[in-house]
């Protein structure tokens, strides 16, 4: 179903965010307030080291409303956006971040390990659309996430506030993030309020950690959090079984047999499970 109220359905982002829209967007005090609040929450979820100035990425930075929040917290940032008109307004507003005109779906043009973290406010849902005949959202998301994984440091997190259209989009996005090597999941703030409900995708580079608690819920309900382990972790786990040493495996097997009341050889020698020369 095509809703006419979702900007993503009206035009591609570089055309939708033209000069008029960029001015309108940035001049709206309600808009400023909302974007600021969401970026503050994203910063909280990013768990940066306290009181250290960091080097951050703002993905789909637009006119720099989210970037201003990063600055106010003492950080330095680089913003990427596909709309020149939005970036021009960011410059007019004299935001401090350095700006780059680029399409997130083509991958990020940065060197490995460059950034301490990334935020993205109200931009990710745009990548779920195919705006050109050669666009494949799944491939573009994968390219984007894998290039993001590469340009973040190994303690960094990336936090995306986004407006998914349906659960399929959430699945599409998380699946591609996982495939790219990220850990993490979705945090839903105020899940019971139609107006205040907000989706955050929290991605981690350096291993799986518990997701932060959602706001506006008594206990952390299962519906407000959905955690995934990255493909890499699954692969590692799957593999670990195979690389378990012979000795470990034998000891476990003996234990199992003992529990089942089956006869076992009690005497293990230092040669138990030792690797032996292979013969053909």
């Amino acid at each position: 179903m095509f809703s006419r109220t979702r900007p993503e359905h009206k035009a591609p982002p570089d055309l939708f965010y033209d000069e008029k829209e960029a001015q309108k967007y940035t001049g709206n005090s309600r808009m400023i307030e909302i974007q600021t609040q969401m970026c503050e929450r994203a910063m909280e979820l990013m768990l940066l080291p306290e009181d250290e100035p960091c080097f951050l990425l703002d993905l789909g930075c637009g006119s720099g409303l989210s970037g201003s929040v990063l600055e106010e917290n003492g950080h330095y940032w680089v913003g990427v956006d596909i709309s020149r008109a939005m970036l021009d307004v960011a410059q007019e507003r004299e935001t401090e971040g350095d700006l780059i005109l680029g399409d997130l779906g083509d991958g990020l043009p940065f060197r490995a390990g460059a950034f301490d973290g990334a935020v993205s406010i109200s931009a990710l849902q745009w990548l779920c659309n195919a705006d050109k005949v050669n666009h494949n959202p799944q491939k573009r998301l994968y390219k984007f996430f894998s290039s993001l994984f590469a340009c973040l440091s190994r303690t960094a997190r990336a936090v995306f506030q986004f407006y998914p259209e349906n659960s399929k989009q959430v699945e599409l996005i998380t699946a591609q993030a996982m495939k790219a090597g990220f850990y993490g999941g979705i945090v839903i703030d105020y899940p019971n309020s139609t107006k205040a409900k907000k989706f955050f995708l929290v991605l981690m580079t350096g291993g799986s950690a518990p997701l932060p608690k959602a706001l506006g819920v008594e206990e952390s309900l299962p519906q407000t959090q959905a955690q995934f382990t990255s493909k890499r972790e699954k692969f590692k786990k799957g593999n670990r079984k195979n690389v378990k040493s012979n000795k470990e495996w034998i000891l476990e097997k003996i234990e199992r047999r003992r529990k089942q009341g089956k006869p076992v050889r009690e005497h293990l020698s230092k040669f138990t499970g030792r690797s032996r020369p292979t013969k053909f």
């Binding site: 680089v78 350095d98 780059i100 083509d106 991958g107 043009p109 940065f110 060197r111 460059a114």
Partner: peptide, 13 residues
């Protein structure tokens, strides 16, 4: 473009 940004930019895309 600041030189900090230039130091991180690549055309590997």
């Amino acid at each position: 473009m600041k030189l900090l940004t230039h130091n991180m930019l690549s055309s590997k895309c």
